[in-house]
Nucleic acid binder design. Structure first.
Length: 434
RNA sequence: GGACUCGUAGUGUAGCGGUUAACACACUUCCCUGUCACGGAAGAAAUCGCCGGUUCGAAUCCGGUCGGGUCCGCCA
């Protein structure tokens, strides 16, 4: 007999069907036993007299019935029907889970959540995090494609430590020292003269010894790069991509946002502030003098987002013109004040979720900048080659997928927004110093 | 790297000088034909992270150690 998906059972009242899925919970009333059966499309109540362990994979043949009047369950899409089982076949018996999977929220401490990752991911509410992530990825692809970008796949093994800034992982490569890339930056720039506009979804590696709620050593970046654009156009592009991703989640996963108790997202016109202007606002509105700082710290980001929400009804804020010295070498200095750069960060609900810049596209200027930073142009031979042959004005940006997911769902820790998070102390299992 | 915090059944917590170490969920057995976080009865399950000290007496106080967590720094 052909398998029926749970959501399709709704239209099969009176028919005999075969359902496949997992037993979520069991309510045993003696002569009558209720099972909640789930598959990828939903959950249905099954009536049987058999005891089946929670978690087991089963195949159930039975008849779809309309529930008696007054016994509907509005929480289920199948709440007006149920399956009267004729035959329950256990395909794979489940052991007892180390915690209660039946509760609406898995109430576990973070280390427990991650120690049992292959099990905790099965919980409906945790699964939802990654359905949202899927929506973000889907919307990013769709928006970038709509903007004329070609999707590219870039390497994560590189011969030079490249960009400076973050610490990088190095390892032995057939007797040579090579590095894991901290961003797809150089590769997407090299592909500008090929495709004019590109995007990539890739992994980025940072060996920073940071143990915080917002850092991963392996993150997923969503990157775009555009040719023939100026600074203001770039700001428009990043705000469009950012807004569309969040709107897609609101549209497609509204119920999940409700489940997580998330406030309605504010889409007012996104304020654009130079770093100095943002610092001025923080001083005036929050009484904290950070005007000498070269970047915003975590508290600054929270403050300025609060201001943007109150004054501009926007959960986003764009911060521009960071000090040139604090940014990667390929960042274009502001021609009007070279101390500052044509760079930007996008903040969303108190956290930086994107950064990027207008790039230096002039070959000579790029070579000089690399030298000024104490790096060697010969380490960038292939990269620089592209700039000798008609590199147009260009720029781009990079979104952090896990950070965006964390902040959309108001998760406490970024590790919750990664299926298998890597940090200083964990690569699937806990690492111990021997 | 620095500061502050927390380690108690499988899980999440309570207890903070003398308790038979408590509660909830999960688990086992029994009862229950309408539950949907089902309900009811009984039960199993913890050398209170580890080592040492103070004390007549330590889960509880002190020191050390190991392991978490949060914040700061670094960083995206």
């Amino acid at each position: 007999m052909e398998r029926t998906l749970i959501k399709d059972a709704i239209s099969k009242i009176g028919e005999i069907v075969r359902l496949c899925g997992w037993v979520n919970t069991r309510r045993d009333h003696g002569k009558i036993v209720f099972l909640d059966l789930s598959d990828r499309t939903g959950v249905i109540q099954v009536i049987t007299d058999q005891i089946v362990n929670v978690g087991s994979a089963v195949e159930i043949i039975g008849s779809v019935k309309k529930r008696p009047e007054g016994l509907f369950n509005p929480k289920l899409i199948t709440g007006e029907i149920e399956l009267k089982a004729k035959e329950v076949k256990i395909l794979a018996q489940s052991e007892t889970y180390p915690f209660d999977m039946g509760k609406p929220t898995l109430d576990l401490e973070l280390p427990t959540l991650l120690d049992f990752r292959s099990l905790t991911l099965q919980h409906p509410k945790i699964k939802e995090i990654f359905k949202v992530q899927e929506t973000i990825l889907e919307a990013f692809r769709k928006t970038a494609t709509g903007l004329g970008c070609t999707e590219i796949v870039v390497p994560t093994i590189a011969a030079s430590a490249t960009e400076g800034g973050a610490e990088v992982f190095d390892f032995d490569y057939f007797g040579h020292k090579v590095y894991l890339t901290q961003s797809p930056q150089l590769y997407k720039q090299m592909l500008i003269p090929v495709f004019e506009r590109v995007y990539t979804i890739c992994k980025a590696y940072r060996a920073e010894p940071s143990v915080t709620t917002r850092h991963l050593t392996e993150s997923t970046q969503m990157d775009c790069e555009f040719a023939f654009v100026d600074f203001l156009q770039l700001l428009g592009l990043l705000e469009e991509v950012g807004t569309k991703m969040v709107k897609a989640v609101e549209k497609k996963d509204g119920e999940i946002l409700e489940d997580f108790g998330v406030d309605k997202i504010a889409f007012g016109k996104i304020p654009r502030l130079k770093l100095r202007e943002a610092q001025e606002i923080i001083f005036k509105e929050f009484g904290r003098d950070v005007k000498e700082e070269k970047d915003l710290n975590a508290q600054d980001e929270i403050n300025i987002c609060k201001w943007a929400l109150e004054k501009h009804k926007s959960d986003f804020v764009t911060i521009t013109h960071f000090p040139t010295k604090k940014r990667a070498f390929y960042t274009m200095p502001d021609p009007e004040d070279k101390e500052y750069s044509l760079s930007y960060d996008l903040l969303f609900r108190g956290l930086e979720i994107l950064s990027g810049s207008q790039r230096i596209n002039d070959y000579q200027q790029l070579v000089e900048t690399i030298k000024d930073r104490g790096m060697n142009p010969t380490d960038f031979e292939m990269y620089l080659m592209a700039f000798k042959y008609g590199m147009p004005p260009e720029g781009g940006f990079s979104f952090g997928l896990e950070r965006l997911t964390k902040n959309i769902l108001n998760l406490e820790n970024i590790r919750e927004a990664s299926l298998f998070p890597r940090d200083m102390e964990r690569v699937d299992k806990r690492l111990r110093n021997e």
